[in-house]
Simulated scan of single mutants.
Amino acid sequence: MLSLDKIYHARFVLKDVARKTDLIYAPKIDPESNVYLKTENLQNTGSFKLRGAYYKISQLSKEEKERGVIACSAGNHAQGVALAATKNNIPSIICLPDGAPISKVEATKEYGAKVCLVPGVYDDAYNKAIELRDKEGYTFIHPFDDEDVIAGQGTIGLEILDQLPDVEAVVVPVGGGGLISGIAYALKSLNPAIKVYGVQAQGAASMVTSLKEDEIVKLEEVGTIADGIKVKEPGVNTFDICKKYVDDIVTVSDDEVASAILALIEQHKLITEGAGAVSVAAVMFNKVPVKGKNVVCLLSGGNIDVTILSKVIERGLLKSGRSDTLMIQLEDKPGQLQGVSSTIAKYGANVTGVFYEKASEGSNITDCVLRINVETRNFDHIHSLREGLKLEGFKIIE
């Protein structure tokens, strides 16, 4: 059974393995709240998952360790299990979805595990891992629905209380629910007044749906840039713990997640993956009631695939009003581009791309369309730029 004693024991076991990650004050995330960032993205292996995986493996019997361990993961749990198994001289095999970021796949191998790529998402990898467990006799290390794993993740709650004794709210990413279950159990057991809020991606809201229906629901499909929390179905243990100890779970869009990733990079020089940034997105976009409170946003992981980072930043720039695309209909004659560029310069925007297109059906045959990408400061700047172009007589195609 999960207990506060078990979480304290997990902290003792992990004292020389897991970092006590920093708690960083972040006033720009939400000026109306006292926001702190719990930087598990800087944890060993780049994610909180090491905590639960290592504690679970430390509690296995000699016979279980000798059989070797198997796990399934979207990437971060894989690395935690691989490192924990290697440190304990235990062979490990990890089943990952074939769409997992290459960086996570390669890191898992580097930590000493054998990797089995499975077509589909996390749940497909889970089914394959169970199949291999039954066939080969491996010991299965569940990524979230296990009381030892949950206890390991709960050590983060103890650290938060040590670092910010007057914390009033904690915002936690939610996939299968292991992380928030451990943190909520620890915090509520020690101080029931602390609010614990979970955050899921809109495209993978399995725990939100399950709590709403008051029963475990398996989603038919999931889709989000937050691959670390792309889970179709919550666990039995985590569902029960969330029902009892979590105050609310909300959702954020991929655009909001991208904005949060960008804000963390620019304001705090911190790299997070999509799943790691959903807590910040929830506070930035007022999804949780934390105004005026001492609130901790948990950055659960930093293992973002660098090949999609530029796309995420681009989306974040659009969502926060830092870039815009202008479609301007012009008469196709000399000097038009000069007039447009002069106006853009006058309003302090920076041109990053210019594309010429022939007029579409319904416009004058002598017209053309300029598609111009610009860097801007915010949405107010975009509005003033567009109004300025209209004042100069240019027709913007909305």
Rank of each mutant, 00 (worst) to 15 (best):
K358R: 15
L317C: 07
L164N: 00
K20W: 00
K218W: 03
C297D: 07
V170Y: 01
D123C: 05
Q59N: 14
K287V: 05
D248L: 04
G388P: 09
K195M: 11
N237G: 00
M327N: 09
M284A: 07
S310N: 15
Q59A: 03
E375Y: 10
Q163R: 05
A85P: 04
I183Q: 03
K346D: 13
T139D: 09
L391C: 04
V340T: 10
S342G: 07
A78M: 04
I57P: 06
I249Y: 13
I344T: 12
G393R: 02
N191A: 08
V252T: 08
P334D: 11
S103P: 00
Y356T: 07
Q200M: 11
G46L: 01
N378F: 05
P119E: 06
I372S: 07
E314R: 14
E147T: 11
I29K: 06
P101T: 06
E314Q: 14
E331S: 14
K56Q: 10
P27L: 02
E361D: 13
V312R: 02
P143F: 03
I194E: 01
S189C: 08
A186D: 05
E361F: 14
L309M: 13
L298D: 00
E213Y: 11
V13H: 02
I308C: 06
V295F: 09
V167K: 03
Q200L: 08
G228L: 03
P119S: 05
S189H: 02
I372P: 04
I216N: 03
V167N: 05
I308T: 13
V149R: 02
K38L: 10
G75F: 04
V174E: 00
N76T: 11
V278N: 05
